[in-house]
Simulated scan of single mutants.
Amino acid sequence: MKFDKFDREILRVLQKDATVSMAELSQKVGLSHTPCWRRVKRMEAEGIIKQKVTILDNKKLNLGVSVFIYVTLKNHDGESLNDFEASVQSIDEIVECHTTSGDKDYLLKVIVESIEEYEHLLKSKLTNLPLVDHLSSTFALKQVKNTTELPIKNI
């Protein structure tokens, strides 16, 4: 899909506030209502705009401990990888799971209330994930940057 300046501006505005009305959006990007609406609908249909969500403040919800966990598996065949990936889906505290290059297989991001809660999660669920050989946990001390906005200036 080709993007022009209006498409990019629509995406910028929606990334900052997905609750903006179509009238406000069209005014902010400099288009009339109908062409703006058509562009948004096209980007939704093409999967560029995947969903509109509400972003919660984890600290205000008493979920202030973020842990990054490198995972190394015992086996690397397709079935083992699929089993591991399917199993992480059922653990709510795992908010992100990425395959990685190098000597580690996965990087997990876990958000919990406390270190004690993480210890319980580690012992009761994480060490029991299929084919886990090694887990290496790192606790985030301070979040320096947090954005859900993609750098769309060059699309």
Results as ranks from 00 to 15, higher is better:
I111Y: 10
S80E: 01
K41Y: 00
I94M: 07
K60E: 12
D105T: 01
I94Q: 04
I49V: 05
E113N: 13
M43R: 02
V110N: 06
T127H: 13
V71N: 01
S66P: 07
K41F: 00
S90F: 11
Y70A: 07
K125F: 08
I69R: 02
Y118P: 04
E117R: 14
E93A: 15
N58Y: 15
L81D: 04
E117F: 10
V88R: 02
N128H: 15
T99R: 08
F68I: 05
S90A: 13
F84C: 02
D103A: 10
V40A: 00
K59M: 06
E116A: 08
T54N: 12
D57S: 12
V53Q: 10
S90H: 13
N75D: 08
N75A: 07
E85K: 07
N128S: 14
Q51F: 09
I91D: 07
G64N: 09
E113L: 08
L126T: 07
I69S: 04
D103T: 09
K52N: 04
A86Y: 08
K41R: 06
W37T: 06
L108M: 03
V53M: 11
K104S: 05
D103L: 06
L126A: 10
N58Q: 15
V95F: 08
T127R: 15
V88D: 03
D103K: 13
N58R: 14
G78D: 12
N128T: 13
I111N: 08
E85D: 08
E113G: 05
I55R: 12
T127S: 12
I111C: 08
K60R: 15
E117L: 06
K41S: 00
N58S: 14
Y118V: 04
N75R: 13
K60S: 14
S80A: 05
V110R: 02
E113T: 08
E93Y: 11
S80T: 11
S66A: 12
D105R: 05
D83T: 04
I94P: 09
D92T: 14
F84L: 02
V95A: 08
K52S: 07
Q51H: 13
K59A: 09
Y70R: 04
S101E: 03
K104M: 04
F68V: 07
K41H: 01
I69M: 06
E113I: 07
I55F: 12
Q89F: 11
K60L: 12
Y106G: 00
S124D: 15
S101I: 02
